[in-house]
Write a protein that binds this DNA or RNA. Sequence first.
DNA 1: ACAGCGTCCTGCAGGC
DNA 2: TGCCTGCAGGACGCTG
Length: 272
Amino acid sequence: MPELPEVETIVRNLKENLGGKIIRAVKINSSRSLNVPPAVFKKKISRAKIVQIRRVGKYIIIHLIKGKVFYLVVHLRMSGQFIIAAGLKEKVRIGFYLKNCWLNFLDARNFARIWLVNDWKKTPAGRIGPDALKITRKEFLERFSIFARRFPQKMVKVLLLEQEFISGIGNIYAAEILFLSRINPKRKIGSLTSIEQKNIFLAMKKILRKAIARRGTSFDYAYRDTRGRPGDFQRYLNVYGRAQEQCRRCGRNLVSEKIAGRTTVWCRRCQN
DNA sequence: ACAGCGTCCTGCAGGC
DNA sequence: TGCCTGCAGGACGCTG
């Protein structure tokens, strides 16, 4: 499931391979994810030049130019993939031909969304909070205080998943951040001390940076980089996917519970 | 106003 | 071995 480190890895790959290239042709096998009719999409994007590729939270923003500047905004959700290959892949939903390669957009579960727009800030990508990787400690703590004052009863795990608070964190990294900062995921944000808030910030930075260095987490088939390779961070997961297994810190069995509809694993002894 | 659940969707794991 | 059921989750919409 692409979260910030996975999207960052994909964006870095796309930048290296697609920057400055022209989209020569588009093949649409499934238009479910598009915000415009397939014919419109094809017409607008054909012969456009890719001038910039960047990440905003979990969104990929591709800056295009054809007379004027416009944008392709992509959210991969659960299973969206971009695979660069010599040809079209078997289950490709949308193929972009770029002179000597195809950019294959695949999405097993059909959850991904693609917007073709003149102003990317008018898509959901323009309505999210500061990026988890870029936010400063000061800004994080200020923002935490605002949310803690407004929603003191909200569980900290839920806050970390809210893209309006900070963007980029999903279920895997939220669980890992709370383990490293030794906070119980069910703690109410109004009860967290400034030291605990600071520890969450530090754990967040540490984990996101390491996960990017390991090219993301491939827990299952869902996430692959643009060459179809899995990430490596699953080797370093302390809690996600480890329910009933032993805590790497204290040896106690990890517990699992649904929090806000999402499976959450933590250590009852280490996380208070 | 806010919390919490259902929905979308399909691959895969586990049970019998 | 093969079928069936249920689980996985990001974001949004609906409900109470």
